[in-house]
Design a protein around this nucleic acid. Structure first.
Length: 225
DNA sequence: GACCAGGCACATC
DNA sequence: GATGTGCATGGT
């Protein structure tokens, strides 16, 4: 937890935070809404997810029992704006079955009592919930100190020489988890900030935080843009 | 019209 | 284990 890597990772967080401020993730009024958003945002712009969540809310479906009772076609039509709606409707229904079967019986409070690693494995058993979605649920719905890795994380950290192109998901996750304190609030903000800076059309000449960061960390190396 | 967006499962080698 | 492909809407 000490050493240059820890200091640099902390430095990057502080720099991004100073530049962008708090990101207030995850947007959503309930644990359940956060979980649904995590599934719906797979390879999808958040704006589209908001429309889908709005449809679900208007239909009274941001409710565990009611969504569990709905058929896949109904879910599919409501989440249409989020794209991949047939696939995602099945994934949502798979999650609902997981939630309502044993041992949770539809009770998210029961889920919340499960130890982090066991819960991660359990979530990964749901068809349609992969590592990023599982970790997003663990961190943002259940407040567990799990670092979420996504395309932005890899892009930004790759640009700045922390990882190479071949780094796989678990490797990147370990980079953060082994070199930062296991603090859910820190991981929450850090991931959100990486997404924020990752969205910037960052160029070497620009004065965005990503570029300041590059100057700070790897001044002489500008990767191919 | 092309390209992208807070992935994942599955087929194939 | 690595690589390729289908899934789909809405914004730029």
């Amino acid at each position: 937890m000490s050493g240059m890597l820890s200091e640099r990772l902390r430095e990057i967080h502080d720099l991004l935070y100073a530049c962008y401020g708090p990101q207030y993730w995850w947007p959503g009024e309930s644990r359940f809404e956060i979980i649904l958003g995590a599934i719906l945002t797979q390879n999808t712009n958040w704006r589209n997810v908001e429309k889908a969540l709005g449809n679900l809310k208007a239909a009274g479906m941001l409710d565990e029992e009611r969504l569990a009772a709905a058929d896949a076609e109904t879910v599919s039509s409501l989440i249409r704006p989020a794209g991949y709606y047939n696939v995602k409707a099945v994934r949502v229904k798979n999650f609902m079955r997981w939630l309502f079967d044993e041992p949770y019986w539809g009770d998210l409070d029961a889920v919340a009592r499960v130890e982090t690693e066991a819960l991660r494995e359990s979530l990964l058993g749901v068809k349609g919930i992969g590592r990023e979605t599982a970790d997003s649920i663990l961190l943002y719905a259940f407040g567990r100190p799990v670092f979420v890795v996504d395309a932005y994380t890899c892009r930004v950290m790759g640009r700045h020489g922390f990882i190479d192109g071949e780094a796989d998901y678990e490797e990147v996750r370990r980079l953060f988890e082994e070199n930062l304190p296991g603090d859910a609030a820190l991981f929450n903000e850090y991931h959100a900030l990486l997404v924020r800076v990752g969205k910037e059309q960052c160029r070497p000449t620009a004065r965005c935080a990503g570029c300041s960061l590059a100057h700070l960390v790897h001044e002489s190396q500008w990767p191919a843009w």
